[in-house]
Measured scan of single mutants.
Amino acid sequence: KRLCLVCGDIASGYHYGVASCEACKAFFKRTIQGNIEYSCPATNECEITKRRRKSCQACRFMKCLKVGMLKEGVRLD
């Protein structure tokens, strides 16, 4: 089984260019469509796991980008 490159949960397929789970796919889409900017309360190096993926949105979004999710893949309509 493929794992989500962002949080390590089971991937539902390839989304925005990267093997990812439904939760991270939806999080990435919401962030881009809403043009949301997050800031990390710590040092921008929070560990993102299935259990902790909700704890820091800034680091989760940075990890989405780091593993290769493409903003261009999100439709803005």
Rank of each mutant, 00 (worst) to 15 (best):
I36T: 06
R60A: 11
Y14C: 13
R30K: 14
G73S: 11
G8M: 08
V6E: 03
V74C: 04
I48A: 08
C59S: 00
F61T: 01
E37L: 02
K1A: 06
V74S: 12
C21Y: 00
A58N: 13
R60I: 07
V18I: 12
T31Q: 04
C56S: 01
L65V: 10
M62N: 07
L3S: 11
T43E: 13
E22N: 15
C56R: 01
A42V: 08
K63T: 07
A19M: 09
F28R: 01
N35D: 14
T43N: 10
C21K: 02
D77N: 08
V67I: 06
G8L: 10
F28E: 02
G68D: 06
K71T: 09
M62S: 14
E72R: 05
G8I: 03
A19D: 13
R60N: 03
T43W: 11
A11H: 02
A26P: 03
K25V: 15
C46H: 06
A11L: 06
E37M: 02
K50W: 08
A42F: 07
Y16V: 09
E22M: 05
C40D: 00
V6A: 04
C21S: 03
Q57W: 08
S55R: 15
H15Q: 10
G73A: 13
C4D: 00
E72M: 04
Q57V: 07
E37F: 01
V67G: 05
N35H: 13
K54R: 12
E72Q: 08
A58S: 06
Y38K: 02
G34H: 06
E22K: 04
C21T: 01
P41H: 11
F27Y: 04
E72P: 11
R30C: 03
T43M: 13
D77Q: 15
T31A: 05
S20V: 15
L65H: 01
G34V: 08
E47H: 05
R30H: 05
V67C: 11
N44R: 12
A11D: 07
E47M: 03
A19S: 13
Y14L: 13
L76I: 11
S39I: 15
Y16T: 05
L3I: 15
K71Y: 07
L3T: 11
F61N: 03
K29Y: 02
Q57M: 07
K1H: 03
Y14R: 04
L5Y: 08
I10Y: 11
R52Y: 04
A42P: 02
E72S: 11
L65A: 07
Y38Q: 01
A42K: 10
D9H: 05
Y38S: 04
R51D: 10
I36L: 08
S55G: 15
K29F: 09
C4L: 01
C4H: 00
E37A: 03
